[in-house]
Amino acid sequence: MPAAARRLQPPLPNTWGLGYPRCMDAVPKQPPPGGEDLADERQLVARLRVGDGASYEQLVRTYGGRLLAVARRLVRNEEDARDCVQEAFLQAFRNIEKFEQRASLGSWLHRIVVNAALMKLRARARRPEASIEDLLPQFDADGQRIEPEAELAVSLELLERREVREAVRRAIDQLPDGYRNVLLIRDIEGYDTAETAALLGLTPGAVKTRLHRARTALKSLLAPVIRGGKP
């Protein structure tokens, strides 16, 4: 999988006296899953392949916490998250022969647990998807924004505040699943468009559209936070 945090390009010319968007690259990059030395990892894989009993426990203890964090983000329910992690490890044990070692073991496991979490989400009772049209920008006949965009008046210290982080997570959870899942897999788990499309069974174009709408809707939901610093 790609680096977990997508690096935003520093794209903008410095115009309007507003400077560069201040948030870019401000968020610490999440370390890629894994972390074992390659040699250790190869040794662990070799032991798993010959059915060494201790190697199963080592795998679970090494990667279980990280995978549980991923599952919690996606399914929002501790019991379901643990089920996903268990299912992911069982799949990994069964399919260790198929692990090609082109990616790291952590990346391979990450993908398996994301798939397990998505299966769990699909299996849940489906609700009709709520509309997010009201959260999207409106344009006039000339294609110009109807609502002027307010200037940001918030510092990066905001990110340090627990209540702000909770408000952001609540806002993400307000998004309909079809948008929330794309946002989490692209922006949080760090998969690229093609990988996200494969995981979700969508076309790359649909992923981009949903991602943009999800980010835009989230931006509207977070407007009080982004502009005023209050969740």
Binding site: L8, P21, C23, M24, Q30, V154, L159, L218, V225, I226
Partner: peptide, 8 residues
């Protein structure tokens, strides 16, 4: 962009 950073 700030929204993306906040969510991350």
């Amino acid at each position: 962009q700030r929204t993306i950073s906040l969510s991350q």
